[in-house]
Amino acid sequence: MSQSELVADEQAARAVVRHHSELSATLTGHVVRLVGAVDLGDTRQAWSCRDELVAWLHGELLPHASAEETALYPAAADLPAGRLLVEAMLGEHRAITALVIELNETTSPTVAAAAARALQAVFAVHLAKENEFVVPLLVNAEMVSLAALLDGMHDIVGTETGSSAGGCGGGSGGCGCGGDAAGAEADAPLLSIDPRLDVRDLPHGERHARVLAALDALPADAAMVLVAPHAPRPLLAEIDSHFAGQVTAEWLQNGPDVWQIRLHRLPVAA
């Protein structure tokens, strides 16, 4: 394997791990809201949170799992150390799918909250195995190109996709951002290898929380690109306050219709 191919594989590996962090953060946000509504005895809100979670699971998490089974797992299973590992990963996919079905079919808010917590726990263990075993196995395999396996697989690396939970409080919501300058149909060219968090389709009141949750889950020395319909200066001020200067912002696209900012979480000081 050439040096350029190795670099491409390492970049692809980082993109996978970063997208895993984004998925984990989004799932956690959904579960926290559902469990909170159940704890408060707010049945109407609990069912609304359940429905939002199920929609996200079908729209994001399950397609991600399916894409892994198509793009990554066959290559990993062909490696001497990968067959049993992949069998275990597929078993966890079946467990996740069963929990999604339970969430969708239960008539009890308490059962829904318990299933959501169980799903969160299984998914966390599953992602840890992928990050620590499956991805390194493919990167280190001499005859496998992880970058080639992931070419165009946006469900795995998260590029050119939006996310489905968030927080801004912009426009009339009072964050001082001045409202939306453009919708999600405006051109947002791919300007970085880092995963993108496109908040343009999210309600104003959800954007800030979504971005902060994604940054909380971002590993040290990793980055993501925020795609916004306006210059998110109040959000950047909130990020700086929340993370005490541990996140830097690089403006990649400064309007007039779309703004893209690369948010880099700095390495932890030794």
Rank of each mutant, 00 (worst) to 15 (best):
R117D: 00
D221A: 14
A220G: 06
A209N: 09
E102D: 12
D240W: 09
D221S: 13
L235T: 14
G245W: 04
A112P: 00
G158Y: 02
M143Y: 07
A181E: 08
D201Q: 15
G170H: 05
I156H: 03
S145H: 06
G245H: 03
E102L: 14
M153L: 05
G167R: 09
H230R: 05
V139Y: 09
R196M: 11
M143G: 01
E250S: 12
S241T: 15
N131L: 01
V135H: 06
L149I: 11
H230K: 02
D221Q: 09
A186N: 01
N131H: 08
P234V: 08
G179F: 07
A124H: 00
G205C: 10
G170A: 12
C177H: 08
D194E: 12
D216R: 13
S163C: 15
S164P: 02
G178A: 09
A188G: 06
C168P: 12
D187Y: 02
V139Q: 08
E130H: 08
L149W: 06
E130G: 12
E142Q: 14
D194W: 08
L212C: 10
A116C: 10
Q120H: 13
G158P: 10
A237S: 11
D187S: 15
D155V: 05
A116P: 02
I193A: 13
A181W: 05
V247W: 07
A237K: 10
C177F: 10
D216Q: 12
A209L: 13
P203E: 03
G170E: 02
K129H: 15
L119W: 00
A228S: 14
H208F: 08
A213D: 11
F133G: 03
L202Y: 06
L191T: 11
P195Q: 01
L127F: 05
C175N: 10
L226S: 04
P195Y: 03
V211T: 11
A249P: 10
I156L: 11
S145Q: 03
Q120S: 13
R196D: 05
F243E: 01
Q246C: 12
